[in-house]
Design a protein around this nucleic acid. Sequence first.
DNA 1: AAACTGTACGAACGATCGTGCTATCTTCGA
DNA 2: TCGAAGATAGCACGATCGTTCGTACAGTTT
Lengths: 199, 199
Amino acid sequence: MPVDGRVARGDATRRVVLRRAVDVASVDGLEGLSLGRLATELELSKSGVFALFGSKEELQLATVEAAFGIFEAHVVAPARTVEPGLPRLWAICENWLVYSEERVFPGGCFFFNAGAEFDARPGRVHDAVAAASGSFATFIRETAADAVALGHLDADAEVLAFELHALGRAANADAVLNGGTRAYALARRAIRSRLGQNP
Amino acid sequence: MPVDGRVARGDATRRVVLRRAVDVASVDGLEGLSLGRLATELELSKSGVFALFGSKEELQLATVEAAFGIFEAHVVAPARTVEPGLPRLWAICENWLVYSEERVFPGGCFFFNAGAEFDARPGRVHDAVAAASGSFATFIRETAADAVALGHLDADAEVLAFELHALGRAANADAVLNGGTRAYALARRAIRSRLGQNP
DNA sequence: AAACTGTACGAACGATCGTGCTATCTTCGA
DNA sequence: TCGAAGATAGCACGATCGTTCGTACAGTTT
């Protein structure tokens, strides 16, 4: 299947723009994204960047999608290679904490920020963020349910999944806001007391 | 001590502006605040609102302070009237959940949003948000330490405080983002399993 | 009554925003 | 080789942003 060189060129710059966009948005928010700023920083024309996406909202949606791909590559995909149940649950938690701790996005977890930014606003961006966030919540919940069904744990799977997700997000929030790594240590201790000493 | 009628008038409009500002900011963020929008909605002149605060950053700082007052009045102050230790810890959690659930701020917990917005940006607004958030975290931690010291609970107080704070914030995040009240029910179940069946 | 202070307004500023139009250049398909 | 299609650039637009300035009015102080 031969590729169209023109489209390939467009896709390449689109990736360049989005790579920068996810970093900017993780710090300054999806609303803090601006065509002009992206264009200046990447030495492109504002109208060129605009034409690539068609509108600011489309740029925001593409940014959410790109961030979701990065998130899944760092957290979800590696966890899926681990055996189901408790081991996978451990992998999810640890991958998530490392993903936050290593600042895969410079502003911490992208979806934590985007969720807080768009939680109370209607629109397509809200829906995209909620879908991405919900997809991860479902992944934790199903893995927790597996762990219980397999007899690895004795707990309410839904509550357990909620707790684990909560601990990760709180660690991210505290660590990014206040600096330091103490919040991650606290989260790991709490997770250990939920899942047992396995790691 | 006699009051200056001019200053009183200024303080009155300042309160009117701030009351609106905290609501706007809880939905659209502190950066989403705009002098012009506030002025239009309140039927004031943009330059008049500007003069009341001196700069946009001062308006943001005043908004954080105003929101902190509302937060303390709803969550912290009532909990301080409850006997120290476990009862007070219960009161903190329940007050916080009700504060979020009742949408004291239309966008959910003000400091959850402001914290996510300014966590990775330096400056005075970041510091103010971090201080407010930290003050509440300290309150939970000290209350948890009391509960342990009084023999009400057997736990690591710091980890327990982190967990409780995490559960509340996660409930707020999920409920505002996705709607519904299921997240609050999950948080309450998790809190109950941390603190015991008491209330 | 005069001098001063603080609130509030209206108009204007430079900057930036998102979004159009138009032209140029590269690449593809006939 | 020629015309269509896509990427990119240049320029201009209306709107909005935060901010400044000059002024009018209300209230305090002397």
